[in-house]
Nucleic acid binder design. Structure first.
Lengths: 253, 253
DNA sequence: AGGGCTGTTGCACTGTCTGCAACATTCATT
DNA sequence: AATGAATGTTGCAGACAGTGCAACAGCCCT
């Protein structure tokens, strides 16, 4: 909508790939060097871009600070955190908290497993949306037309032989998840990792977040992990209760 | 330099304070609502801004992703992390890693204390630059004129009675730190918290990062903490060695 | 129904962004 | 040391993209 801003913002993902010099930035934007220079300068003044000593540009420090502040404003996270820690203390496995936002599901909190074998994931990183248990819960709660629209648009990478193969299968899975009120991912992302997940609901009953417990086969089998389901659901419900009981109303988000 | 981009970027810190609606954004930018709308739309398309169901705007998800990617490009961090964890395992206290960037020092990694009493700090958050041990090390390594320039510009908040009071005292402290090759903060930020820090150097000898161990008085006294200095320095040197031994040269940064 | 509030669109104007070309600077090469 | 290439930087005139206005649409509250 705004050409100048559009160009400036396009620089950020570009620099996320790694440092680049003025010429490279100008080329990839398809603009004159002088134009790129001015854009970079503006980004620089706002601290979003940093100029290292070899003159190349990199993403800057304020970006961290902004992202951190944004995190803190997510009040589900704040409320949920102690519950997640307690759950981790009682079962020992990795616990995740995730939200849905504009066709993406992302982890907003994580408590690491206390076992030496840990699964790889990172706060802020988009989740494998077609297979993750938390993603299923979050998508299952969307209004039907939107759910369908999203499902059609997605890619269905075959991470493993048990990954969701296509939109049809995914929508059927979502329907099932919607009815039972919990979800699993049994080796759909990483062959040897299983997850159980439960939804966190706001006062109006809509799913605002989802949490999961994940563990690799070498630590517990899928069946053993499933025995944790009641505990996971209780934890999720406790968070839901606390979240929706708040005086301050922040919409259904 | 670029008015439009400047305005658009000014929206981000504004939203970091909390969600805001169109009118509020327009007011605080001092522009017409329609202008604010177009800027927000552009930010939205790039995922930096999210529109919640009550129509208000918030910082968006891509911001996290960007910040995370930016983190990963800091290779000191990657190299240092396992060392920090090991140090934490052997002493139990909070371990921090920080870098200097454009008049700011910020934490880029942290391993939490294993004691119940923890100090407050956050990755991505600017450090109390006039008192933190890591800040002293990073500033002490700047070329003299720059160091002086930065010191003059800073504010010297009196967090405690032992905080650095003014530029003169700070520059003297930096000189001392520079010579001895390590730094402390003994209750200069929080009355009851002490830190010991050591520098991490690149191949050319310049300080690229600094690490510290922090602990509250209730856990160990300042003297006890100081006995960890050799260990902290050894850890920092190990990281320095690994960092500067790399084949891939990324400038002195 | 009516009035107030917020978000949205179309349009004419002007101011800001653009690309160019000339200049500055650093670095490599002879 | 001097030349050349490559990169970053500045001033300028023209043009186009961004601006504010005013009118419209939708919503909630009375």
């Amino acid at each position: 909508m705004s050409q100048t801003v559009d160009r400036a913002l396009s620089i950020l993902p570009l620099l996320a790939e790694g440092p680049a010099d003025l010429g490279q930035v100008a080329d990839r934007l398809g603009v004159h060097k002088s134009t790129a220079l001015r854009l970079l300068r503006t980004l620089h003044e706002h601290g979003l871009v940093y100029r290292q000593s070899d003159q190349r540009y990199r993403l800057g420090a304020r970006l961290f600070a902004l992202a951190q502040e944004a995190m803190e404003n997510l009040d589900v996270r704040e409320i949920a955190h102690p519950h997640l820690v307690r759950l981790n203390e009682s079962c020992g496995h990795t616990v995740h908290l995730a939200v849905y936002e504009e066709n993406e599901v992302l982890y907003i909190d994580k408590v690491e497993s206390r076992y030496p074998v840990r699964m790889y994931s990172r706060i802020g990183k988009p989740v494998a949306i077609t297979v993750a248990a938390v993603a299923k819960l979050l998508l299952a709660d969307l209004p039907e037309h939107e759910r369908r629209a999203v499902a059609e648009k997605l890619d269905y990478p075959a991470y493993t032989s048990r990954s969701t193969p296509n939109a049809g299968a995914f929508l059927r899975e979502l329907e099932k998840v919607r009815e039972q009120g919990w979800a699993t991912d049994l080796g759909g992302h990483e062959e040897s990792i299983n997850c159980v997940a439960a939804p966190i609901r706001g006062a109006d009953g809509r799913v605002v977040a989802a949490m999961s417990v994940s563990a690799p086969n070498v630590v517990v089998t899928a069946d053993e992990l499933l025995t944790l389901l009641p505990l996971v659901r209780r934890t999720a419900d406790a968070i839901s209760g606390e979240y929706s009981g708040r005086t301050q109303v922040k919409g259904t988000e």
